[in-house]
Write a protein that binds this DNA or RNA. Sequence first.
DNA 1: GAGTAGATCCTCT
DNA 2: GAGGATCTACTCA
Length: 204
Amino acid sequence: MKVMKKLSLDFYRRENVLQIAEELLGKLLVANKDGIITSGRIVECEAYAGATDKASHAYGGKRTNRNKVMYEDGGLAYVYLCYGIHHLFNVVTHSKDIPHAILIRSLEPVKGIEEMLRRTEKKQIDNTLVRGPGNVSKALGIYTTDTGTSLRSKNIYLSDDGFMYPKREIFSSPRIGVDYAGSDALLPYRFYIKGNPFVSGKPR
DNA sequence: GAGTAGATCCTCT
DNA sequence: GAGGATCTACTCA
């Protein structure tokens, strides 16, 4: 019997964002929108290590209206609009004034698949349903208005059902879409499940 | 199959 | 006024 447990605040409020990112793999992201529950297992994510990370919105301690949520205590959602089209969902980690965050890049659909198909206007499930961070948010119905939401609220939360991927299936690589970050773009801050069809980027 | 351009709008300078 | 933690479709081969 599987027991669903929401991740504790202690989980988010640790210092090592890379470790948290790796441990997020296999966890469930659950969204409860309009009384409809959709959820998916995290199979890919990227760590953004705050002020020292050129690829982060908070690089150099930059603090703006948009990214201020990153400076809050861990355990909040940070959602923002990219390219005017895509809502990207992040998990804020660490403690107050340390702007660490983890971008959820893709999920393996678990619950509410029909609802996800409806939202993304797809006919059947395939590996494009939730491929890439833009589609993850779309499928789960997450929008910028959800930024700052506690990840222990009813609307959006992460949970652990005891499932774990074998260590040998967990791989890391440079992050995607952050070429502008110079040398920091090469940091192996992306974690994913090798061989999972829902991982974005190149197949296999 | 691989590579590239266009979409589209909010946020920061 | 410029540009972005992206995605899709279209071209060419």
